[in-house]
Simulated assay, not measured.
Amino acid sequence: MTHLRALSILLACALLAGCASGPPRRVSEPAASIQQLTVRADGGWTVDLRLQNYSSLPMRFEQVTLEVSVAGEAAGTLQAQPGLTIGPESADVVSVPLTPSAGARMRMADALASGRGIAYRLEGSLDAAPEDRARSRTYTIERNSQLSPVPGLAGVLR
């Protein structure tokens, strides 16, 4: 009977010790996508870039370098140093100006004039790190998606 009691106490202590470690820390690859693209009067674009943190802990987003293309036409490079901390399994948006290539500008004007959507591609890298670590890691970003004109907002696609 004493051995059973000692074994029960030992098992209870082991279970309590296992619970003390807290939830697991999972670092997952972040993602980037265009949330909104606004064509400005001067022909430049403002790209609202959505940065997604899929990790179970806050991540610090330090650098973004992404090649943008629309309808298969290279538009230019988005570069930003957001210095932004995004909470676990959350997202935030950073606005980045872009001076698009002439070909991309024409493709965008054609899509807006006809009221149809346009395909886009992002390809490049994003540097991020858990909030409590000094060194960041570079993640490769590849994203293909579609933007559609926003009714009632000229020159705006989402």
Score class of each variant (00 low, 15 high):
123 E>S: 10
42 D>S: 09
120 Y>T: 00
104 A>Q: 03
8 S>E: 13
36 Q>V: 11
50 R>Y: 00
50 R>M: 11
66 L>W: 06
70 V>I: 05
126 L>I: 07
107 R>G: 00
47 V>H: 02
27 V>I: 15
144 N>W: 11
129 A>T: 04
134 A>C: 03
60 R>A: 14
131 E>T: 09
62 E>G: 10
102 A>K: 12
88 P>A: 15
106 M>R: 14
15 L>V: 14
130 P>Y: 11
96 V>L: 10
113 A>D: 11
134 A>M: 10
134 A>R: 15
57 L>A: 12
122 L>Q: 02
155 G>L: 06
107 R>M: 03
62 E>P: 03
145 S>L: 02
69 S>C: 07
41 A>T: 11
64 V>C: 01
116 R>K: 12
13 C>K: 05
73 E>H: 06
148 S>F: 06
114 S>F: 04
36 Q>A: 12
139 Y>K: 05
50 R>E: 13
118 I>Y: 00
7 L>Q: 13
92 D>N: 14
106 M>D: 12
96 V>M: 08
30 P>Q: 08
1 M>L: 12
27 V>G: 04
40 R>T: 13
27 V>H: 01
22 G>K: 05
10 L>R: 09
104 A>H: 01
41 A>E: 14
36 Q>N: 02
7 L>T: 11
37 L>K: 00
129 A>S: 15
16 L>C: 13
140 T>L: 15
122 L>M: 11
61 F>C: 05
140 T>Y: 10
102 A>H: 08
75 A>Y: 03
